[in-house]
């Protein structure tokens, strides 16, 4: 059946996200998508959705949401005190929300962004093949913006029989699939597309000490402060593509880590690129938190990604029983 989530309080910044608006970067359309793709996928797997279903990304301060009908729900990523009808419910485990119940995000314990998946998925209209919100271009999600009090966010259809008969609290081990970054993350990098514009010594310096995330950081990117990474070569560059997780180095030498809402192109050289498996770790950080970078091989990057995929497949398999 079709129903809606009623947003009583939206929290600081709650947006609809799916795995992103791919295929339109050639005409300048940013990809967007979850800042912690792993937690987004885990939440979907726990409630039996496919990984492309849309979830709500909750930032720092969580929402209060009323449910119209009975749904299987999971919250992953940042840990909050979760209250359902006054009772505490766990993170990273699927639970049933009865029709008319309210889910309240209380105190945040760890991490920056939580993902709320509901069986059937969030069913806002697709724009260019995606439901992801890109706020700057007012595209996708719920009317192109963050959720506000009074919004009624449409949900997709579910077939309740598929989960009603099973144990309501499932997906054991969901939380242990990956450790949650707590104010610091050590992440792996591969050389960036413009690595050859930097001396080896500068690439070493990137790994020499942690960087602090600046207050003017958002879903587009994190401004970092730490060891200065000046390019010894020509600093002017013809604009190039800007993949997720590249570390751009502007003239100041203080790098900017490009995240989900980045523009499709940019004119600063990129010294390094985060491995895909570690994007979600930095997605759990916020202003004032720190990041350490360590170089790895392509083989290590893929091994880490395969390990995550295996873990998610295990959860997905369990939730389909």
């Amino acid at each position: 059946m079709v129903s809606a989530l009623h947003i009583i309080r939206p929290g600081l910044l709650t947006t609809v996200q799916d795995l992103g608006r791919w295929g339109s970067q050639a005409v300048g359309v940013p990809v967007a998508g979850p800042m912690d793709p792993f937690s987004h996928r885990l939440a979907n797997a726990l409630v039996g959705n496919d990984s492309w279903s849309a979830t709500l990304e909750v930032t720092l301060t969580g929402p209060e949401i009323a449910f119209e009908d009975e749904r299987l729900v999971a919250v992953t990523g940042a840990e909050f005190d979760l209250l359902l009808g006054g009772q505490s419910v766990p993170s990273s485990v699927a639970f049933v929300v009865r029709a008319g119940s309210r889910l309240i995000f209380g105190r945040r314990l760890r991490g920056t962004r939580a993902y709320l998946a509901v069986a059937g998925g969030v069913a806002v209209p697709q724009v260019l093949g995606s439901r992801a919100t890109h706020m700057l271009s007012r595209m996708g999600g719920f009317r192109g913006r963050a959720l506000a009090s009074g919004d009624q966010v449409p949900l997709g259809q579910t077939i309740p029989a598929t989960w009603r008969s099973s144990d309501p609290a499932r997906g054991e081990g969901g939380a242990s699939v990956r450790l949650l970054a707590d104010r610091h993350a050590r992440v792996r990098v591969l050389p960036g597309p413009h690595r050859d514009r930097f001396d080896d010594e500068v690439f070493d310096r990137l790994q020499s000490a942690p960087y602090t995330i600046g207050t003017d950081s958002d879903r587009m990117g994190f401004r970092l402060s730490g060891p200065t990474l000046r390019s010894e070569r020509d600093t002017s560059m013809i604009s190039d593509a800007t993949p997720l997780g590249v570390l751009q180095v502007p003239a100041s030498g203080q790098p900017v880590l490009l995240m989900a809402d980045r523009q499709t192109t940019g004119g600063y050289p990129a010294i390094a690129t985060l491995v895909s498996a570690d994007i979600g770790l930095v997605g759990q950080l916020g202003p004032g938190d720190t990041i350490s970078f360590v170089a790895c091989s392509r083989r290590e990057a893929l091994a880490a990604l395969i390990a995550q995929e295996r873990a998610l497949m295990g959860v997905g398999g369990a939730s389909r029983l």
Partner: peptide, 15 residues
């Protein structure tokens, strides 16, 4: 030029 584990860039002359 690889750009991480999920992007590869074909670069032509720098102008």
């Amino acid at each position: 030029v690889p750009a991480g584990d999920s992007v590869v860039i074909a670069e032509f002359e720098d102008r």
